[in-house]
Amino acid sequence: MGYDLHITRKSEWFDEDGDEITLDEWCNFVKSSSDMRLDGFAEIETPNGTLRVESEGLSVWTGYSCHEKDGNMAWFDYFEGNIKVKNPDDEIIKKCTK
């Protein structure tokens, strides 16, 4: 079982009302960061072939200590005014709070 961590300006990430992070803000943040990369997609190989997800704000944290070790990637995805990270470990959570 997994979980998502959301970076948000709202009281609750799922609220319809409240301040949002704009896609431009997110992309500018990623582009200005020396340890983040804006890819716009993620791919993994599965026994049944390649799984590809595309999202305009999908970024990877290249400064992650497990980056590309055994296929590990720390993906940060922009979605509906929030940034979402799936199944973050302690290191990724610490990155989210900076």
Rank of each mutant, 00 (worst) to 15 (best):
D89W: 08
D77E: 14
I92K: 00
N48Q: 13
G2Q: 14
K98R: 00
R37A: 03
G81C: 09
F29A: 00
K94E: 09
E54K: 13
G2M: 15
G18W: 07
N72E: 14
M1V: 14
G40S: 03
S65V: 06
E80A: 07
N82F: 07
V30R: 03
I7K: 13
L58E: 09
S33Q: 05
L23Q: 12
D70K: 15
I21M: 04
D24M: 06
E56W: 08
G63P: 05
I21L: 03
R37F: 08
E91P: 02
F41I: 09
A42R: 08
D70L: 11
S11D: 14
T97Y: 08
S32N: 10
D15M: 01
V85G: 02
T46R: 04
H67E: 08
K69F: 11
L58V: 06
C27E: 11
N48V: 12
I93N: 00
F79Y: 15
V53P: 00
D39S: 08
K94T: 10
I21Q: 03
I83G: 01
E25T: 01
D90A: 00
K69S: 03
P47T: 14
T8L: 06
G49C: 11
L38E: 10
E56I: 12
S32I: 06
T97M: 07
E16V: 13
